[in-house]
Design a protein around this nucleic acid. Structure first.
Length: 343
DNA sequence: AAGTCGTGTCATGCAAGAAG
DNA sequence: CTTCTTGCATGACACGACTT
């Protein structure tokens, strides 16, 4: 535990336990095991006034927003325990993931039951002009008096350098191309199938899939436009064609596009709201198209898709899908034949 | 897509131990 | 001895994976 040192500092600075108040606008928390492994930290009584929570009663909660760069994270203060009232700051798992992403070595250290140390990073709280909003910074990051909210590049700072990032023409949407996941091959022989009756609302399901699929295809068209703009070939944008709409299904791909040097691209779009490694459905036509047009076939896999969000994530598989995917049949097309068809 | 089940998250509260 | 921080147990709930 950090030794409390109550300072008679004539200016402002004072500290209690793991907290240090630098001014009436800035507080610094020496992060501890709770900060890395759990989702909150205690607020000493002397620190309450900084956060304006002296007046909280037992059972009260106050929601706040923690802004890191341009992202905002929900958290709350709460007053607990009637006999021994205390306040805690608790945040949600999104902020916890941010901490664990930034400091994996400390997560590992405390997971191995590492002892408390004063070497841990610090978490700085800066009061913003809006009530119940605090800007946060980690460790030795230099604090700037000006808000970083207007710097869009900060939003994506955790993205690895080798990932490709494109922007829509009005800069409102980011398209992040990630690496293709290396999944386990699909087992050809899983557990014996059980047969259970189900009621399926196929109409609603089909409508939902169509909406997501269409939105994904439109997003890929924007990605193709962004690629051409970035390559200083905006005049080629008009060669992009949404063939799934102009010519209908059956071609084996959804979008015909071009590379900046004029080569034709056949693009099949697979969009799901689920994760990167989630399997997707591929028709025989689409699979065959990838084999017969390997040199110009591209499968754009959009995952974690939410058309209300401003970041669209995807990876691309180029060429023949035969050896780049693991597949298993889930449907057959059948006709009745005479009894002994095996001979 | 839907049902089931396992896992993770969150809210809550208690206990141990450090510090005053 | 009292106060307080920190760590963690527990139960409810949400979410995702798996299976069909």
């Amino acid at each position: 535990m950090v030794v409390p040192k109550k300072r008679a500092d004539p200016v402002f600075e004072y500290e209690f336990y793991s907290w240090k108040i630098l001014s009436n606008l800035i507080a610094v928390k020496q992060m501890d095991k709770s900060s890395f492994l759990h989702h909150g930290t205690g607020i000493p009584i002397e620190i309450r006034s900084f956060f304006d929570i002296d007046s909280l009663s037992v059972g009260d909660k106050r929601q706040i927003a923690l802004s890191f760069r341009t992202k905002s994270f929900v958290a709350h203060f709460e007053m607990l325990n009637e006999n021994n009232p205390r306040t805690r700051l608790l945040w949600k798992s999104d902020f916890q993931k941010l901490i664990q992403t930034k400091f994996p070595e400390w997560v590992e250290y405390f997971n191995r039951n590492g002892k408390k140390t004063s070497d841990t990073p610090t978490l700085k709280f800066l009061k913003k002009n809006i009530a119940n909003e605090y800007e946060v910074e980690f460790n030795s990051e230099s604090y700037s008096e000006t808000s970083s909210d207007d710097d869009p590049n900060h939003e994506l700072e955790l993205i690895p350098d080798n990932f490709s990032l494109l922007k829509s023409s009005d800069n409102s949407i980011s398209y992040l191309q990630t690496e293709s996941p290396d999944c386990e091959p699909i087992a050809s022989n899983s557990k014996p199938k059980k047969f259970v009756g189900r009621k399926t609302d196929y109409i609603t399901k089909n409508q939902k899939n169509t909406v997501i699929g269409d939105a994904g295809e439109l997003a890929v068209i924007e990605i193709e436009k962004a690629i051409l703009r970035k390559a200083n070939a905006p005049s080629m944008i008009e060669r992009i064609e949404h063939v799934a709409k102009t010519q209908g299904d059956g071609l084996g791909y959804d979008i015909q596009s071009v590379t900046p040097d004029g080569k034709i691209k056949y693009i099949e779009v697979k969009t799901t709201t689920s994760g990167k490694s989630e399997p997707f459905i591929l028709s025989e036509t689409e699979f065959t198209c990838s084999q017969e047009n390997a040199e110009k076939y591209y499968l754009y896999r959009l995952y974690d898709f939410d058309k209300t969000k401003t970041l669209i994530k995807y990876f691309v598989i180029e060429g023949d899908l035969t050896h780049q995917t693991s597949r298993k049949p889930i449907q057959f097309i059948c006709v009745p034949v005479s009894g002994n068809s095996e001979t």
